[in-house]
Design a protein around this nucleic acid. Structure first.
Ligand code: NAD
Ligand code: NAD
Lengths: 196, 196
DNA sequence: AAGACTTTGTGAAGGATGTCACAAGGTACC
DNA sequence: GGTACCTTGTGACATCCTTCACAAAGTCTT
């Protein structure tokens, strides 16, 4: 809305876009102070500014990707585009064949350089795109190197320390949610069942 | 647990693994009938079987990936490994340079073949890995081709029809949640802010 | 300036969800 | 068989979250 130049928005309009009740929108926004103007609505630029600050997105976060396989490269190219507050500044991998590979504005470097990269580049966050078996070890490595948080894409249970919060993304969950939301009637064929 | 050969589990043990209260586990599982045995706990094989059925994961789902860029190829290789009930059977792209490219057990085919592929291969689900600007169009195409549900990775608001539920995954949210969970004290540098 | 109209902020009510605590049912050992 | 010990299933309670409904505060028109 802001990028389209709209100036004001009502809780009613927001509720339609976000699929929530208008009362919910107002209750939530009121938590941040009196942001709206009665009879008028909310100032979009003001909302964006306030929310950006509350969500701590008013500062830059520098990231390093660990594991430059299929997913690591895709993420680097994606986040590398500088989505808002986030920039990927480096990617590391233990596989020498990947060293020097160009992705999203930087080249892949050896895993051993991690600590140095974090220090020199002022890295804040780590992204794990390594095999599940290497997830815990990689997390520990990132923490030792000094990152302040880690986003994990490996389907593994990783033990985290409070100094470096961990957030895990398991894409399989989305597939499961999708099939659960499917209309009941005719279910698909069962030719490809496999019990892992 | 099942793959490790463990036979039984108590609500207490589950609560520790899942970070929920034991009472919560019991209340939830009791919804599916009396699955447990008092004084003993739950039979793991039985639980897996019951949950698999309830979540409709007891049947195979065949998928097609639309958009064979960085993410599409990564996802194909990932899901192509046949995670439980899911198999990627095809990938399509409008870019002729990508035709014939080999990923995760199949080759990339032209976008125009989509309808035919869905019909011939008995595809149930579609995966959107296209630019945001092409998301709606691609969703419509998938629905017209006959898929029963769509998983979308493009950061776009797509209008869905009830016959083909849509589930969207926005990875940026995870980054935002991660920085919000960071310890308050010293926030990182602000040298790389950009307002998109 | 007054009246008609909007839209926010918010107590109060209602609904949903989570926790407690214990009887019911089961095992294990003598 | 009897006793000690577990662990589930579940009402009763507590807590949290959402919706309702309206006063307060603003705009717009005349
Ligand atoms: N590909 C996807 O779409 C996708 C989606 C969700 C999750 N995942 C998960 O993400 C992870 C990576 O997936 P991928 O498809 O990119 O696999 P991949 O095999 O293509 O890449 C893994 C990379 O990690 C590197 N690596 C191996 N051991 C390492 C270690 N100890 N430290 C650092 N790097 C190491 C490898 O050299 C390789 O480059 C896996 O755990 C996978 O389950 C992948
Ligand atoms: N790369 C990531 O890690 C990542 C993560 C999350 C979300 N996404 C989103 O996923 C989408 C794809 O990302 P990407 O990095 O793979 O981009 P990409 O540019 O590498 O790939 C996009 C692909 O879509 C194809 N395409 C273009 N128009 C199309 C159309 N009308 N129909 C079908 N295919 C079409 C292109 O030929 C290209 O192969 C984007 O919307 C991106 O924002 C990417």
């Amino acid at each position: 809305m802001a990028s389209q130049g709209t100036e004001r928005v009502s809780s009613q309009q927001l509720s339609e876009r976000l699929d929530l009740s208008a009362a919910q929108i107002r209750k939530d926004l009121a938590q941040l102070g009196e942001l709206g103007i009665r009879g008028v609505g909310y100032d979009i630029a003001g909302l964006v500014e306030r929310l950006t600050k509350v969500l701590r997105l008013d500062q830059g976060y520098r990231m390093v990707v660990v594991g430059m396989g299929n997913l690591g490269r895709a993420l680097s190219a994606y986040f590398g585009f500088n989505h808002g507050a986030f920039v990927v500044v480096a990617g590391v991998d233990p596989d020498p064949e990947k060293f020097g590979l160009d992705v999203g504005g930087f080249t892949v470097r050896p895993l051993e350089d991690l600590a140095q990269i974090v220090r020199d580049e002022g890295v804040d966050l780590g992204v794990l795109a390594v095999p599940a078996s290497a997830a815990q070890e990689s997390y520990d490595r990132l923490v030792a190197a000094g990152v302040r948080g880690v986003l994990n894409f490996a389907p593994a249970q990783v033990q985290a320390v409070p100094q470096a919060p961990l957030k895990s993304v398991d894409l399989r969950i989305y597939l499961e949610e999708l099939v659960f939301s499917l209309p009941e009637d005719a279910e698909p064929d069962s030719s490809s069942i496999s019990t892992e």
